[in-house]
Amino acid sequence: MIGAGVLRGMGVTFKTLLETYPWGRAILRTLQIPVTDGIFTIPYPETKQQHPERFRYFPFLVYDGTPDNLRCVACKICEQECPPQSIHIVMEKDEQGRPVKAHGRTLPKQFDVDMSICMSCRICVDVCPFDAIEMDNEYELSASDRYEHMIFDKHKLLKSAEYFQKIKPTEAATVDQRLAAKKAKTASPTGDKPSQPSGP
């Protein structure tokens, strides 16, 4: 039959039109026609998409407990590995040029990440031996000035381990497990470190 295809197509579009309205869905349900959810668009600033846990954007520095107890030891591996060279690290040193230690570790005096050239490749996270840098999922970072706002310094980058556990529970659990294993390994064979008891 000539034109049947056209009519069927128009039926499809009309059904789609009805599906986007609550009353239209009600009509379709009353007629016992299977109904889909309607509009796919997420009106962004009002409602936000639930992104998956593995979604990543820019890196941040992890600290345990207090902000001065950060895991980073300023080893500069990530600075060297960073493909677009967006990381800049200066180690904290005293007047004689010897590294300053806090909580038994060296620490960075300066840790800048230029977010406008970071490409979210996650290589810094992969290469870090101390799990000190992780990927954030915060993506609303637009700013009017590139140098003022898009170069994140140490204070802007620091976020707690709890935050990391909150945004990425699975990955954080793996990291915590690894860190605990490492801690146990360094504690048990020598046994001469009073600062790291094996049990609580």
Partner: peptide, 12 residues
């Protein structure tokens, strides 16, 4: 109408 037929909101 076109937007609704394409599962969109259209101007809002």
């Amino acid at each position: 109408i076109i937007a609704r037929m394409q599962n969109r909101f259209g101007p809002d």
